[in-house]
Design a protein around this nucleic acid. Structure first.
Ligand SMILES: [Zn+2]
Ligand SMILES: [Zn+2]
Ligand SMILES: [Zn+2]
Ligand SMILES: [Zn+2]
Lengths: 137, 137
DNA sequence: TTACGTATGTAATAGTATAACATTAGAGGT
DNA sequence: ACCTCTAATGTTATACTATTACATACGTAA
């Protein structure tokens, strides 16, 4: 098993630690916390918080994952390369998070930014909701 | 000095701890961190993190202050009772935070929410900028 | 008064994130 | 192949942020 060599073009340049963290987030689809990731990947060889945080930092920088600030959690990017601009809905009851597709949002945000004369470099929007399954119960 | 009795109508119902924390944030105008607040108010009698966090929680709940999620900091509300909906600009270089006035934003956000069929209960918007003084240097 | 909800005080502990430093791996040029 | 530079790693320790648990006091309304 040639160690740092994948056949997935998208993950090509990632290191081993970055790759296993990304895969976990990808498989999960949910926001995960750093120390949960650490625990989950002990068997893959991760042994310290820094290994996780360094991988997370890089993946955030690459736009492959995002940090959900109000949950101290990290989630796989559901668009193609937001890089810096992010928007989520977060269920207030169960914590379920969905990333809002850029395409749907871009125009609206641009208008908002223009009207308010904000000279922004990037944004992070968190919309709190009560998700369907929580609304029923 | 009758202890739990102010002449400021707005702060009337606050307890001593809540009041001194609010005053500090009011005087500062900047986002402050919980443990900084604790240190600053040791001389006023605060002696444990919990006293600070409890006051902060209550003030957030009342909409008198807000938490700036990505900075783990708290800032005085610059509007009148946002309660739940907040929007900030945050300087990426120096960390300076400004709350965006509700009035300017409400319509734009409403439109954004409507267009994206978001059924929200509240929102928190963080716009990152490079502030004037940072742009010069 | 009694009862109830809210706030306090205090100590301990849980959860999140970074500093510092020595070492290693990989990419690119010669 | 060899050198060099940059980025990533491993490891330990520590800093920073926030909550649990429990005993006590306070304010208000029946
Ligand atoms: Zn994304
Ligand atoms: Zn839910
Ligand atoms: Zn406000
Ligand atoms: Zn600045």
């Amino acid at each position: 098993m040639s160690s740092n060599h994948t056949h997935n073009k998208k993950n090509q340049t990632l290191t081993k630690n970055q790759r296993i963290v990304l895969n976990l987030l990808q498989d999960s689809g949910e926001p995960l916390k750093a120390y949960f990731i650490l625990d989950s990947l002990k068997k893959e060889g991760l042994s310290s918080p820094l290994q996780v945080y360094r991988a997370l930092d890089k993946l955030v920088e690459l736009g492959k994952i995002h940090k959900v600030e109000s949950l101290n959690s990290f989630i796989i990017c559901n668009n193609s390369n937001c890089a810096s601009n992010t928007a989520f809905t977060i269920c207030e009851r169960c914590g379920k998070v969905k990333e809002i597709k850029n395409n749907n949002l871009t125009e609206g945000v641009n208008e908002l930014v223009r009207e308010n004369k904000l000279n922004i470099t990037r944004y992070n929007l968190e919309f709190y909701v009560v998700c369907k399954s929580c609304k029923i119960n």
